[in-house]
């Protein structure tokens, strides 16, 4: 395989771009903070105004780190799914993870009217939403996993994942029908996605689970590469298909599941980032693609978040809309320019 070294120049460039986007992201916001004070507060020394230090350290930095984790994590889980299913339309949510999370959240927010007042009391603290989302995606994941152990055909798993999505979407519709306007609004707001709601403690938990997912993905690099040949060839190369498949599914679920739990169902990034990366790095080798997708995901998410903030205004647009608004034209442009879907 052509080694990562061949791409070292490109990697240095995108790492620099990432650092640039990171600085840009934390220097922009509703309050204008001069660049030098931004740097000062990153290294922890005092700034001209104490509020600036507070804003940067407790609001913008965690938000920027969340953006990096969300973008890279979704990108990588998208890459894993596209290779596992050998389908360019696959994304991190094909296994029904986001719909599972949506169901969990919908039950908490909307379900109170159906199940009565008991739930309303412990309702809609942030943690209950995180737990509901994790629990929902975990349930869907377990069902998909049980199915995947029984079924040999990977495509069948893909379709079963889509069916799970339909079922959960239907339940959410029924719940919405009975929900009050206020509850609906709350649910819709969760669906917008949000990067800015995490404290350092929450970010810590997010980061730990995220790391498990990343480590599993790194250990899947070799099997992902042999899966490029198709399952029968991969098997003839000595690959244990069922075990690799399970590892890949667990990695995706950890990444996409926690991201959805903490930041809401962020659309598009997981599907688009691997394609953008493949267009720019002309290779299928996951040893190159995995770190590249990581960096690109983080960059795009930081940019989207910077735009969603609308610099120097008090408005924050829904991040979920921005990712699609920015990302979709980019992918279309790349495909039109290269005239070829590389997979």
């Amino acid at each position: 395989m052509i080694d990562a070294k061949t791409y070292s120049k490109s990697f240095i460039i995108i790492i620099l771009v990432l650092v640039g986007c990171f600085v840009l992201n934390i220097s922009l916001g509703s309050v204008h903070i001069p660049l030098q004070d931004v740097f000062k507060s990153i290294i922890g020394s005092s700034t001209e105004q104490d509020t600036w230090l507070y804003i940067i350290q407790n609001y913008r930095l965690p938000k920027a780190f969340t953006a990096i984790l969300v973008g890279s994590g979704l990108g990588i889980s998208g890459l894993l799914m596209q290779t596992l299913f050998r389908n360019p339309l696959a994304g991190p949510f094909v296994l029904g993870i986001s719909s599972g999370a949506s169901l969990g959240v919908a039950l908490i927010i909307l379900g109170s009217s159906v199940f009565g007042g008991l739930l309303t009391t412990l309702l809609v603290s942030k943690w209950s939403i995180v737990i509901a989302a994790s629990f929902g995606s975990f349930l869907v994941l377990i069902s998909v996993m049980v199915v995947s152990l029984k079924i040999r055909d990977t495509m069948a798993i893909l379709i079963i994942g889509l069916m799970f999505s339909s079922i959960t979407a239907a339940i959410v519709s029924v719940l919405s029908y009975f929900g009050s306007a206020q509850q609906l609004q709350q649910y819709v707001f969760w669906g917008f996605g949000s990067l800015g709601n995490l404290s350092w403690n929450e970010l810590g938990i997010f980061f730990i689970i995220y790391c498990f997912g990343i480590v599993l993905s790194i250990f899947s690099i070799k099997s992902l590469n042999s899966l490029l040949l198709g399952e029968n060839y991969a098997k003839s190369l000595g690959l244990n298909i069922k075990r690799s498949r399970l590892l890949i599914i667990i990695a995706t679920s950890l990444l996409a599941g926690t991201i959805t739990a903490f930041a809401g169902p962020i659309a598009f990034i997981g599907l688009a980032i691997p394609h953008m990366t493949r267009q720019l790095f002309n290779t299928s080798n996951h040893k190159v693609l995995l770190p590249a997708v990581f960096l690109f995901g983080a960059i795009i998410m930081l940019i989207c978040d910077s735009i969603a903030q609308i610099p120097n205004s008090d408005y924050t647009l829904p991040i979920n809309a921005i990712t699609s608004l920015i990302g979709a034209p980019v992918v279309i442009w790349l495909l039109v320019r290269k005239r070829k879907m590389i997979f």
């Binding site: 490029l228 040949l229 029968n232 997979f343």
Partner: peptide, 16 residues
């Protein structure tokens, strides 16, 4: 059966 990823270079394919 055909190889799943047609984007592999010949070298990458053989190296697998």
């Amino acid at each position: 059966e055909a190889v799943s990823s047609k984007n592999l270079s010949v070298f990458e394919l053989v190296a697998l």
